[in-house]
Write a protein that binds this DNA or RNA. Structure first.
Lengths: 211, 211
DNA sequence: CACGGAAATTGACGGTGTCAACATCGTTGG
DNA sequence: CCAACGATGTTGACACCGTCAATTTCCGTG
């Protein structure tokens, strides 16, 4: 009955992460987290002002996991375009393997009444995006993409577009909302290929007819 | 005190829609909806098996609104590519104008334990997507896009890619998670332009430097 | 016009997030 | 060496929630 837990803050985040991955429920109760950590239902309030604050840290942990996953996927691929394919697949796989966590990370349950998200989550999310931005910069320097390395607007547009497409695709896959006859394992490749070639590029019209 | 409401089913959905748009809270309580409709907290159970069933119908209504919004945006634009720009902007605008409703439509709160969504929501969402698919078909027939009209796989890939990019972008805009210096009103144009031209298309490298 | 079923009500139960009051511990100053 | 204090954890309470059960009211049909 130690009244003083060593590091309850960390223990609670870990317990919440366990709950999310085990039960695949993004909507766990704060009391359940406390129970799993072996403390009373009010102990968390000494370390988190809110339930939202705990959720925010869980989401931040998720973004750190995503960042590592993406980085590991592209680490040993020198070609930027090939690395982008790896990153896309790694992104969708992460979401598909951790649906509840992914939903918590991007879902609306940590927005307050004014759609503002906690700083710790935003920061972790921005860091995860860094992996993509760095890759795009590398590719631009190698003249692999349609914008110059110094063109910051082009870089921002590119990273926003790719990140949007990845998040959108991952959301559909997670929600089983893809409703497509395309093979699920190749969705990321298909989407990224179209994004690279261009939907309005007529020179791909012949070559895409047979897979 | 009429014990028999005329059409409580509709009234409850409307009340919920009002709550979503007024309070901009996707997380309203079933009891509050009943209160707003002027009935007791258990009356809804005569018309909806679950709270989830009510949420599902609200989301379906949202998809119908989105469908109308998209259709109205492209109705009088014969050029497919121009219409696609209008659709993209209309999509992002809809999400930006109805953040709570948009989150409810695409968010995780109407998934059951197994990430399955109610049929009524899925159906309404598919119908909304029809607007985009029809537009893509029209453009393909006019040789505006990179796939042939008969190439169903190309069509599916295209509509999945565009829908993903739009949903991803809209999510970021709604969550104020875009974190970009690009002007918010032009995000849809920028993303769609890149998607049409192709991220790996070198011929756009020069022309994009100045906006 | 009785009556049976649909629709709405009240009441209850377990669960939740959060606040307030109290108990316990480690640490530090005399 | 120990008293006191602040941080940490506990118990209890409150309002609210989703949902089930029992009850009451109403309308259409025989």
């Amino acid at each position: 009955m130690a009244y003083h837990h060593h590091d309850l803050h960390r223990a609670l985040v870990d317990a919440a992460l366990d709950l999310v991955t085990e039960e695949q429920a993004w909507d766990f109760s704060l009391r359940k987290v406390a129970r799993r950590a072996g403390v009373s239902h009010n102990a968390p309030y000494n370390h988190f002002t809110d339930k939202r604050a705990l959720l925010a840290e869980v989401a931040a942990s998720g973004f750190r996991l995503l960042q590592q996953h993406l980085f590991a996927a592209i680490a040993d691929e020198p070609d930027a375009k090939q690395a982008l394919f790896r990153l896309a697949n790694a992104y969708v796989d992460f979401a598909s393997d951790n649906p509840a966590l992914y939903r918590l990370m991007f879902g609306p349950m940590l927005a307050d009444g004014h759609q503002n998200r906690p700083d710790v989550t935003i920061e972790a999310g921005a860091k995860a995006k860094t992996v993509l931005v760095g890759l795009l910069q590398r590719g631009a320097a190698a003249a692999a993409f349609s914008f110059h390395p110094e063109n910051t607007e082009g870089l921002e547009t590119a990273h926003l577009t790719v990140w949007s497409a990845l998040h959108g695709l991952a959301s559909f896959v997670v929600d089983r909302k893809a409703e497509t006859n395309l093979p699920e394992g190749k969705l990321a490749d298909l989407v990224l290929t179209l994004l690279l070639n261009g939907l309005a590029n007529p020179k791909n019209r012949e070559s895409q007819d047979n897979g």
